[in-house]
Design a protein around this nucleic acid. Structure first.
Lengths: 323, 323
DNA sequence: CGAAGTAGGCCAGGACCTGTCCTACATAGG
DNA sequence: CCTATGTAGGACAGGTCCTGGCCTACTTCG
């Protein structure tokens, strides 16, 4: 059967080494001539198999214009899934949706025996336990992505801002990321209007079998609508600080930076919690002064007090757990 | 040509939706009967194509026992590469090597036009610029992985601990991760002995064409050898702190935790820099007291002072950049 | 210069792939 | 309950194209 042989060949060639034709022929159980023809076939399909001539020659797959099918072994599949899961938790601007699509694709076909390995490994997301805020479950993310792509109506429980939970029946339309949070834009059937939902507040997600009938989108597109709604919903902080450090790439990534002097600049950045603001500022590692907002100043003062207590061994003033 | 058709079919079926046979036939340009036969072929190859019977039926690919070839579009390929790159920077225990292998595989075949998209996106690793310490370049990681897998001798410049750089000729053997650092275990040809190199200190990496002749490994295996050498090399800190918080999963992941009371526990953790220790402790978000080491106490005191200056707007005592 | 590798033309035999036509069976909706 | 629409799969005829064997040309390394 020729089909699986071509895939096998592709799989071998994706290995980072050179394969002499003879060895390939042996592995695939065909003649050398057929191997040459298979290589030609792959090239016709657009996958550039390069060959080095001469005595120590051989074949290998190099970068071409099209993405060849990836043939992964178990460990690699697990590694990719875990990597994408964590990537979904810390979305990278511009490819949030593609990450989730890829993750959904993987989860769809990931063998069961690998699935629990992913689960046990993915739980070990070490850094930033408290500062992270509510974590989005990547599984829920992909489930919603699948439902949206498959135009399938879903039902879920939603924890509103005030803590009240309600049951919703929604036609999911798109996932949107804003800041470091995931949102679902969907049509709420009970309220008969477009709504956005914070995905970390969605629970008991269940697909109903029902197909979604196409519906007119809110004006301006999904991302714009979500951004609009968010500014009216979320209480965001805008911080203005002076940094005593030269402008570097990682600093530029934080927000809007304007140079003041050789080694001084001003940074304007947004975040939805004080914790997150404080964290990103201290992480820079340089001296800085906070100008706005006053809440951040107060927050830093408290943080400094906590660290001082930690250093001096003074127990906390009250036994109540810190916010 | 039958070969590419099967791949196309697989690609369609990886989409999260159901495909009726008629539509598949149209897309693939063959008869319905041939589609049925192709589906059967895929099943024979071990990829479980599931079909829902009845009027609204259709085909889709589900999880089976073998990993099917992944057919990715451009965006998904970029997303996976970026995800793996960041994953390589924050290695997840147990799959470090597989991550790099998968990344190497991807980089080998990633079309050039996608490569620069990855580069521009991958640079935007936002969090923890200063605390991260030296970042490992994932590209160098994969280059070393490829060299090790392909048994190819490499040449590079190495910055030793004291800052002196030297040129090395090395037979790379394995990549090992310890803590949050990547190391290369290799045979140094000039010194004619096994050495470990911190990968973030490797520069100007260049493959020589030479093939590596097999050589006896250091006793105990790669990971053990590296761990051995590291304890004698790196100055690691061991911190002992009391946390005023109930034991949770993310806390357990930090180190060795022993309960003391209902809401109090003791944590013993290792790190190679004070910055990193301080960061992980403050990130927990609870009250704590440091018992050891004294350097950490001093470090936290300084950090608290810096935050106080930031909050009060007092400029730094000296203009010298902070360490 | 010779060994070992890729590149590819030519040929004969036959495997197998395809479309058509058929029946059986499952499911949703009227 | 019945029909429409889907999957499942057997039988068959025609022809595509795949395979292995053999050959020559070219490249590279030692």
């Amino acid at each position: 059967m020729a089909d699986s042989r071509l895939l096998n060949l592709l799989s071998l060639l994706q290995t980072p080494r050179e394969w002499p034709g003879g060895e390939l022929a042996e592995r695939l159980g065909v003649s050398r001539r057929t191997v040459r023809r298979d290589v030609e076939r792959l090239r016709d399909l657009g996958y550039p198999v390069e060959a080095t001539m001469g005595a120590a020659g051989g074949y290998r797959l190099v970068a071409g214009t099209a993405m060849p099918p990836l043939l992964l072994d178990d460990e690699e599949a697990v590694a990719i899934t875990v990597g994408l899961s964590t990537a979904a938790r810390h979305p990278v601007q511009g490819i949030e949706e593609a990450s989730v699509r890829a993750l959904a694709k993987l989860e769809q076909v990931l063998p069961a025996r690998l699935r629990h390995r992913v689960r046990s490994l993915g739980g070990a997301t070490v850094p930033m336990p408290a500062l992270e805020g509510p974590q989005v479950d990547p599984g829920r993310l992909t489930a919603l992505a699948v439902a949206a792509a498959g135009k399938e109506r879903v039902r879920f429980a939603y924890r509103a801002n005030d803590g009240a939970t309600s049951r919703r029946l929604v036609d999911p339309h798109r996932l949107v990321v804003a800041g470091r949070r995931w949102y679902l834009l969907g049509h709420d059937l009970d309220r008969d209007d477009w709504r956005i939902f914070r995905i970390d507040r969605i629970d008991e997600l269940r697909p109903t079998g029902a197909r979604i009938v196409p519906r007119e989108l809110p004006a301006g597109g999904a991302a714009a609508y979500v951004a609009d709604q968010l500014y009216s919903l979320a209480s965001t902080y805008e911080a203005v600080v002076t940094l005593h450090a030269p402008i570097t790439e990682p600093i530029r990534a934080l927000g809007e930076v304007t140079p003041i002097g050789e080694r001084v600049c001003r940074l304007r950045m947004h975040a939805d919690t004080l914790d997150w603001l404080a964290f990103r500022l201290t992480a820079i590692g340089c001296e800085f002064e906070v100008h706005e907002p006053p809440e951040l100043t107060e927050h830093l003062r408290e943080l400094a007090a906590r660290l001082t207590r930690a250093a001096t061994g003074t127990p906390a003033p009250s036994d109540s757990p810190p916010a």
